[in-house]
């Protein structure tokens, strides 16, 4: 399951980043790190862009990038 499969306002934990070293580091520098919980805050009408809240940061991701971030939803 990836970020792209989540519903808006759903909370999840990052379980893995399936991407090259460079891009993974880029994500890390934005606080997108394995083991971190986040909330999917918004997606555009066409679900092409996603906004997540990680550690009180708002980060926008494109669908292709969102699909590289493996998540596991947190139970309510």
């Amino acid at each position: 399951m990836t970020i792209a499969d989540l519903k808006v306002d759903e909370k999840a934990e990052i379980v893995g980043i399936d991407a090259g070293k460079e891009f993974k580091r880029r994500l890390n520098s934005f606080g997108i790190v394995k083991g971190t919980e986040f909330v999917l805050k918004a997606k555009t009408l066409t679900a092409n862009t996603f906004e997540i809240e990680v550690n009180r940061n708002m980060i926008a991701l494109r669908r292709g990038e969102a699909q590289k971030i493996k998540v596991s939803p947190c139970k309510r």
Partner: peptide
């Protein structure tokens, strides 16, 4: 290839 899109929303 496209550039990855990761952007902070301040």
């Amino acid at each position: 290839e496209d550039e990855p899109f990761v952007m902070e929303i301040p």
